[in-house]
Design a binder for these strands. Sequence first.
DNA 1: AAAATAAATTGATCCAGATCAAGGCACGAT
DNA 2: ATCGTGCCTTGATCTGGATCAATTTATTTT
Lengths: 226, 226
Amino acid sequence: MFTGCTISPHHCACFNKLTEEQKKQLETKSVTIKYKKGEVICKQGSFASHILYIEKGLAKVYLDDGQNSLVLKVIPPGNLLGLTSISEENNNFQYSAMAYLDSEVKQIDISFFKQMLIQNPGFAKEVIDILISNSIQINGRFFCLTHKQSYGRLADILLCLADRIFKSQEFELNLSRKDLAELSGISAETVVRMLKKFKEEDLIQLDGKSFKIKDYAKLKRISEIG
Amino acid sequence: MFTGCTISPHHCACFNKLTEEQKKQLETKSVTIKYKKGEVICKQGSFASHILYIEKGLAKVYLDDGQNSLVLKVIPPGNLLGLTSISEENNNFQYSAMAYLDSEVKQIDISFFKQMLIQNPGFAKEVIDILISNSIQINGRFFCLTHKQSYGRLADILLCLADRIFKSQEFELNLSRKDLAELSGISAETVVRMLKKFKEEDLIQLDGKSFKIKDYAKLKRISEIG
DNA sequence: AAAATAAATTGATCCAGATCAAGGCACGAT
DNA sequence: ATCGTGCCTTGATCTGGATCAATTTATTTT
């Protein structure tokens, strides 16, 4: 029912709503920056002069209080990042983001973005839809991390990676065990133990960073039962 | 830094942006319904033909998978409910809501609401701001419930009630211990024990449903340390 | 006011998963 | 090669808080 999956299944559609003229303007009002894996793309609390759009790579969005960190979502190409900064009262980043893989990020001037919201109702409506789908997704993850137990959460993430990121039952996961732990909201040691168990029970095949989902149905069941 | 507080600190400002004409129309497109404490206002999954606006009372918004329940937020008068249903792809309620106290709720025709989004960019912008502030709030709560421990969460909720609902250090809490438990994401028994501890340590005064914050600063510290 | 029902409190037990500690392994730097 | 530094893995231990069970106190219902 609810999934801890952090990855939006669709591209954001808002830019399609811009007129040709506006699209041209957009190009002059934006610039693309490259980030290496592990680099910080935006920092919680800092002033936000841009809305970000992931063109290539993968980024994680997380909250941090200096002590603990919570991954809110993972953003694949085709999605916006930093939308919360367009609010009038919170014009700084409400979360941090880091490149999970080498990435390219388009920075869009925030006042241009706001101008589009006012000038182009279709664009605004699309942005609203994006915000809503973000909320729904995060609510699901919220439910997951607070009510499912670790097994289910890990199964969830594995399926999410297979389905939404790699679109294959077999993949090379370029993330550390610690990253995986963060994603599923459990400790790195526990992740290792659980992966081992999944392997023993023949639900997955695992060798270092090579993953293969062997029993999708059973993993699905585990993710649902919790 | 992050708070588990579920209550939005401000009224929604979007209706101010409507023209006089549109405000009049709004009246013809909406109707106010009364709910008794405990009644369900909207049910997760059901078709949403209206956007809801809390006029009086208090409502809780929660997710439910039949097994567990997670309170996303508590909505005081002056706030919208069910905004997620204006999305094109999710035109049903993404969560349930229940009256915490006797309440009055205005139901606004959803297609009228959508029409306003298109016709009135100022209105749309305001709705975007509301969605953003909702997300920020829920993200904070998310962090709280996953990373703070129970003590901090309970302290958090008590301060939130005092500051945002009752606007007084002393209040009569019309919620059961179980409700309080749900709000802070812990079991009812644990809530009782912790309240007792708070009382013993002279942080609060407590008699049944009468609460009084005696040491705000210390509670604040507990809520921050976790 | 007595009976029935629900909520609050307290104590005892249990367990998922964190944390701590220690080795094994891989890979970039010297 | 070999040193170092950081991941991965495994085992041992600890604990916050859930759950279960039983009693007490409120609140309805009749």
